[in-house]
Structure formats: C-alpha cells, structure tokens
C-alpha cells in the first residue's frame, strides 16, 4: 500500500514536471532562412535548428507553433505560446511589451533591393513588411512606405513595379536576388538596424528567459552557434567571439 502511494506520488510529480517543461515556440514560417515551411510541411530553417538545440541544452521539451506575424506578440502575452523565435529584431518599442533574450544573430544589415540601379530610395516608393524595424526606418527616411503583411508580397511589389525598391533584412534578400537572374539587384548602402535578433518571452517569464539565455551563452562559447550562422547565412556573416562579442568577417 505504501508502495502504491509512493508510485502515485512519483507519477503525479513527474506529470507536474512534464507539464511545466513543454515550451511552445511561436514562429512565422515565412521568412527563410530564419524560418520557413519545408516541402514536408514542417517548420524548418536556422531558427528551427537553433531552437531545437537550445531546448536540448536547457532540458526543455519544445513544440513548434505557427502564427501570423501581425498577431505574434498579442498571442504571446495572452499565453497561446511561450516564446517568439521568428527573426524578431530587438527594439525598444517591442521591449516595452515583451522581454528578449540576448541576441542569437548579431545586429545585421538591412538592404534595399530594386529592379534597377537607378531606383530612388529617398523619394520613391519603398516596400517593407508591416510592423518591422525596416518599415519604421522607411517611414522616417522620406520615401513613401508601402507595407505588406508578408515578406513575399514586398518582393512581388517590386517585381510588379508597384514599389521602386524593397527594404528588408539582407539575409532574407540574398537568396532571392541571387536567383532572380539579374531581375533584382541590391542598391544603395546596407543599413545596420536594431539590436540583433533575439527570442521574445513574456515579461513575467523571467525563469524561462534565464534558461534560454544560459543556453545561448553556452552555444556562443563553444562555437556551435557560429557554425549554424555560417551554415544558414553564408561564410561572410557576422559571428560571435567566445566571450559573446560580435566578430564581423
């Protein structure tokens, strides 16, 4: 009888632990190479690989959830998932609503891509995704901003001539420009924006944030994060030194 009680207690305890340990990871699934849906219909990309490794190191069981970019923050604070891992740049405005881990992608350049070299970046029409730091930058630059719900539509706007140029993370634009066969080119200078890409968590979720912070630190220290960065963003991408400082290559 005593044994039975003990077993039940143990079961209840492990069930309780399992309950606390499932972390739902919210992502957009439309922003390669950060995150996208592969041919098999699963979440894939740099953040999938990174997130799985972070969960392993932190001893958490993780599950991937897709959510529209527009409502990705409201659904986090409402508790529908526990983290945002969706190529989200750390900015002051977002930091007022949610908390971020340390960055796992160094502050990266944003770039303009256009159909021709002569695109007018300061007075023309520039496309950007809604509620991104790029959209905020364009709005203040004097150019006319057109916003789209998905990154895909910002590219389509340039191809169709609706916008003179698109302004987005350079990492996102590189494969598209490379495969466009000369239809799209980079114009103007790269613009460094934001405080790097970090993982978003609820402000009240300090414990979870601590666990992920620790896992990111350990990945920076042993060089595994750098390997992933190079694998997904190319050899020339900025990486981290073992002390966490940014190294530009």
């Amino acid at each position: 009888m005593k044994n039975l009680i003990l077993t039940t207690a143990a079961l209840a305890l492990t069930a309780g632990m399992a309950m606390a340990d499932t972390v739902r990871m919210g992502t957009e699934g439309a922003y390669p190479p950060y995150n996208f849906i592969n041919d098999a219909g699963e979440v894939d990309g740099f953040e999938r690989e990174l997130g799985d490794e972070l969960c392993k190191r932190a001893g958490l069981e993780c599950e991937w959830v897709k959510n529209d970019w527009d409502s990705i923050i409201p659904n986090l604070v409402s508790g529908n998932y526990d983290t945002i891992i969706a190529g989200m740049s750390i900015t002051d405005e977002r930091d007022e609503v949610i908390d971020f881990t340390q960055n796992y992608v160094p502050p990266a350049a944003s770039a303009f891509a256009a159909a021709s070299d002569g695109a007018d970046l300061s007075g023309g029409v520039v496309a950007a995704q809604t509620a991104t730091i790029q959209a905020g930058y364009v709005a203040e630059s004097g150019a006319t901003l057109v916003e789209f719900a998905t990154p895909e539509e910002t590219i389509a706007a340039v191809r169709s001539g609706e916008a003179d140029a698109v302004f987005a993370d350079k990492d996102y634009l590189v494969p598209i420009v490379e495969e466009s066969g000369g239809e799209l080119v980079f114009v103007g200078d790269d613009v460094p924006l934001g405080g790097g890409v970090g993982m978003g968590v609820r402000e009240s979720d300090g414990e979870l944030r601590g666990k992920f912070d620790e896992a990111i630190t350990s990945m920076k220290a042993d060089g595994t994060l750098n390997e992933m960065l190079k694998k997904w963003f190319g050899e020339g991408t900025a990486t981290y030194g073992t002390d966490g400082s940014v190294v530009t290559n």
């Binding site: 439309a30 390669p32 190479p33 849906i37 041919d39 990309g45 529908n80 494969p175």
Partner: peptide, 26 residues
Amino acid sequence: FLLGIEDIVYWARELGGTKTSRFTEY
C-alpha cells in the same frame, strides 16, 4: 487565418510564393 487556422487562402499564398532552390527541391 486571423484565428490562427491555416485555411485555403493561407496555403495558396504560402505555396504560390516564390521559392528559391536553397529551401526547397521544387
């Protein structure tokens, strides 16, 4: 889709969008 359910319009947009050879076999 506003309710987080992947409906036919979401998938049409997702599947129809430009795909580069780095991230898909098609």
